[in-house]
Design a protein around this nucleic acid. Sequence first.
DNA 1: ATTCTAATGAGACTTTAGTCTCTTTGCAAT
DNA 2: ATTGCAAAGAGACTAAAGTCTCATTAGAAT
Lengths: 200, 200
Amino acid sequence: MTERKPSNQELRTRKDLLRAAGRLMKKGCKPTMDEVAAEAMVSRATAYRHFPRLDALLVEAPIDAAVADPVGLFANDPSDDAEARVDRAEASLHEVVYQNEAQLRIMLANSIGRDMTDDPLPARQNRRLPLIEAALATARHRFREDDYQRLCAALALIFGPESMVVFRDVLGFDAGTARTVKSWAVRALVRAALEDAKSA
Amino acid sequence: MTERKPSNQELRTRKDLLRAAGRLMKKGCKPTMDEVAAEAMVSRATAYRHFPRLDALLVEAPIDAAVADPVGLFANDPSDDAEARVDRAEASLHEVVYQNEAQLRIMLANSIGRDMTDDPLPARQNRRLPLIEAALATARHRFREDDYQRLCAALALIFGPESMVVFRDVLGFDAGTARTVKSWAVRALVRAALEDAKSA
DNA sequence: ATTCTAATGAGACTTTAGTCTCTTTGCAAT
DNA sequence: ATTGCAAAGAGACTAAAGTCTCATTAGAAT
């Protein structure tokens, strides 16, 4: 438990590496550690000191569009139309996901493929649950607690980059068609959860 | 267009390689090309002659439980309860997916991460749509064509290994909890599509 | 049985991931 | 300004992916 405060120098190098990785990934292909180090004007050994594996670096690289901010998105929207709010939240995440498709695919592939016998979990960031919960916040009192949890989990299947992979690689859908299907699906799920509450 | 018929010898080594890869993947970690070649008692060069990249080999490796066969599953089930049939189809695929989790993660990671600037699409096999369509077959006349297509696409998000990744890595759910959520979600979606048809 | 060809085996070679060691430099406290 | 330490640089080294070349062998046709 010796939490040492990193020096300014360390923080600066670390930030440079992450931004360099993000810059290279936006060009669409997985960069090598050498390339990231060169782009960050840092030696390769130093890059490895900060990120023990290439994956670890790529996973933490910043997404371009400041990711849809749950609080900001609904800051001035007191509506309790859960269907519409969830749909709007999905639309917002949809934009971010499809505009960062290449980078997200790299990150997703790395987090999925990691050997399952590894130590803890190298921390997969979870942007979707806060967004879903913000969307449902004003209507949460209308759900039974169990129904609410189940709805959130089901919506998590539709939000996020995994659905993009299914639409693109399995079904061959473009972004617009995918959005149409997702919009219908999230509304149907929210409606179903609300009806479960009524009939309980 | 010179489709040459492969010799018995070629077919045999190809099969040996795929089965060796499957055997190694069942142990949970991504094998190297050397390991697969050794397991198949074949030289490394020969392995590369049949599968230009390691990915190509792993993607084609056979899934253990003969995958849920759409026609067999509903062979003696003339029911037109679409909800129940889709739920049963999902349960069947759920078993296969969670019993081959390690192998499917490897295959999924490889297919997601492939550089998008590559030639065509190295063919991702699609088991879920035939299954979904078989489940909906006896009730298909009750849907408008558009609604049917949209429902199939939405269900494709829930069937298959991507949902396992979301449940496990993002939500931290075990197989049983995941199954509960999926069961509820697929039923809700089928019901919603049926209601769309009624109100049209 | 002999011969011809295509598949295989063997192994060198390149590139990148990742580890390790040793030297140099930047930075901060005195 | 000097000193001390941690971070950065430089580069060797191993392992695996993937490519290539050349020798060998298995199998089919004669």
